[in-house]
Amino acid sequence: MNASAPSIPHGHDDRDAHGHDDHGGGQGHIVLQYQPGLPLSKGKLIMWLFLSTEIMFFAALLGSYVVLRFGAAVWPKPHHVHLSEPIGAFNTFVLICSSVTIVLAFEAAKANKVAMAKNWMLATLLLGSLFLGIKGYEYSAKFSHGIYPSQPHSRIYEKPDLYYGSAVRARLDELRKVPVGLVPAGWREAADRSAEAGGTVDLLKRLDEAPAEKLSAEQQTARGRLQKVQKMLTNPGQQPFDLAVVADQVMPLPSEGTGSHGGHASGLNDAFPWLRLPAVIPGGNMWASTYFLLTGFHAIHVAVGLLVFAILLTYRLDRKRAGMIENAGLYWHFVDLVWIFLFPLLYLF
């Protein structure tokens, strides 16, 4: 861009192009007043252009989600996939608060209240971090239930069919030959230490032989149910319905209206987290793909916003920086906007 003040002939060329001035000589009497195409600063214009591409980016993601969700034969209910609506609502509240604090930082900077602007900016940074922290906690809750976006970590099966049954059997076989180093804490015995590195432990046998006082009441009933499940899986007269019973024992799908906790504390995987048995969530794989993609991209946007705030905090946030804060705020409000749609679509639909 030519930033220097142009000479009159330069301006004259431009005027010629627009046909405003046909007589080259008489510049003196025309007072040109430049009207910019868009009455806003370059930074803001570029931020809005960027946001319009972001609108399309998230529209593609959200649109795909909606279309996939309503085109699916089965879609899991939020509590089937252990989503907690109150946590989601609280995260919405956190983001709304951060939207207010960034706008207050902008107002303070505009009024040249440097310290106040810095405090509001810091509050925004903290609220954004809180949002990410809660999101991380939610992710870890999904991971602990074997809900991952893809193999090999994902333990979700679409239906209680033969493939599911053989997957459970394969996992149970694995549990009979666990390398000593991978034995979960609390289940190690003195004999393991003397065993050589290549040794394996039959964890299922160790569970069967464990004294009753070592287990909680819930774990004692779970132990009995695990034995029943093993018998069902090796029963030559196995019925298709038995596999549904196995799936229900491993991780029951909470029924409607069981409350915010999900009421699923009775699954074998909950009683013994180290079992990590495959679980059945009809429609769960597509759900996991869309959930992690949508919330993951949103979380990346939040993280970028936090980075921008951290950089802005190193400046003196006076009137001169108000434009920068405004642009950062525009981006942050957009991130908030995306969550406003994500929250009901993911948690409440």
Binding site: A73, V74, E158, K159, P160, D161, Y163, F241, A244, V245, A247, D248, P252, L253, S255, V280, P282, G283, G284
Partner: peptide, 17 residues
């Protein structure tokens, strides 16, 4: 191989049983 509403019903029946 795809999940169908009948699978959901099957799971519900298993839970009831």
């Amino acid at each position: 191989h795809m999940a169908r509403p009948s699978d959901l019903i099957l799971m519900e029946r298993a839970a009831e049983a």
